[in-house]
Amino acid sequence: MITDVLAEAREKMSKAVDVAKDDFSTVRTGRANPQLFQRILVDYYGSPTPLAQLASLQNPEARTLIVTPYDKSALKEIERAIVNTPNLGATPTNDGNIIRITMPELTQDRRKEFVKIVRGKGEDAKVAVRNIRRRAKDDLEALKGEVGDDEVARAEKELEGVTKTFIDAIDDALKKKEAELLEV
Rank of each mutant, 00 (worst) to 15 (best):
Asp23Lys: 14
Lys175Pro: 08
Val83Ala: 01
Ile98Ala: 03
Val162Phe: 07
Asp150Arg: 01
Val127Cys: 06
Asp171Glu: 11
Lys164Gly: 04
Glu113Asn: 09
Glu160Phe: 07
Ile170Tyr: 12
Ala74Asn: 03
Gly148Ala: 04
Gln108Tyr: 12
Tyr44Phe: 10
Asn94Trp: 07
Phe24Glu: 02
Thr29Gly: 04
Ala179Thr: 13
Thr85Cys: 10
Arg111Val: 15
Pro104Ala: 13
Gln38Cys: 02
Leu181Gly: 13
Leu106Met: 15
Thr64Trp: 02
Asp124His: 11
Asp4Ser: 09
Asp150Glu: 02
Asp22Tyr: 14
Ile66Tyr: 06
Asp172Thr: 09
Asp124Leu: 10
Gly145Pro: 09
Leu140Met: 04
Val42His: 01
Ala62Cys: 05
Tyr45Gln: 14
Arg154Leu: 09
Thr29Phe: 12
Ser56Thr: 13
Phe166Val: 03
Ile82Glu: 13
Phe37Val: 01
Lys15Arg: 09
Val5Gln: 00
Glu79Met: 07
Ile78Gln: 11
Thr165Ser: 11
Thr107Val: 10
Ile78Asp: 08
Val17Asp: 00
Arg130Pro: 05
Ile82Asp: 09
Ile132Val: 10
Leu51Gln: 13
Glu123Tyr: 13
Arg130Glu: 01
Leu51His: 14
Pro69Phe: 03
Arg31Gln: 08
Val27Cys: 06
Gly96Ile: 00
Pro92Trp: 13
Glu11Ser: 14
Arg100Asp: 07
Thr107Ser: 04
Ala142Lys: 05
Glu141Gln: 05
Asp172Ile: 04
Val162Ile: 14
Asp124Thr: 08
Lys157Leu: 10
Met103Asn: 02
Val118Gln: 05
Thr91Gln: 13
Ile170Gln: 06
Ala136Trp: 03
Ile117Asn: 07
Arg111His: 08
Leu36Pro: 00
Arg31Gly: 01
Lys112Ala: 15
Glu151Asp: 07
Glu158Asp: 12
Leu36Trp: 15
Glu156Pro: 12
Ala74Glu: 00
Lys76Thr: 15
Glu141Asp: 15
Ser73Tyr: 00
Glu61Tyr: 04
Val83Met: 01
Gly89Ser: 12
Lys76Asn: 11
Gly161Ile: 07
Ile117Gly: 03
Lys164Ile: 01
Lys21Met: 06
Phe24Gly: 10
Gly161Glu: 12
Ser14Trp: 07
Tyr70Asn: 09
Glu160Pro: 06
Val129Lys: 01
Ala155Asn: 04
Leu143Phe: 03
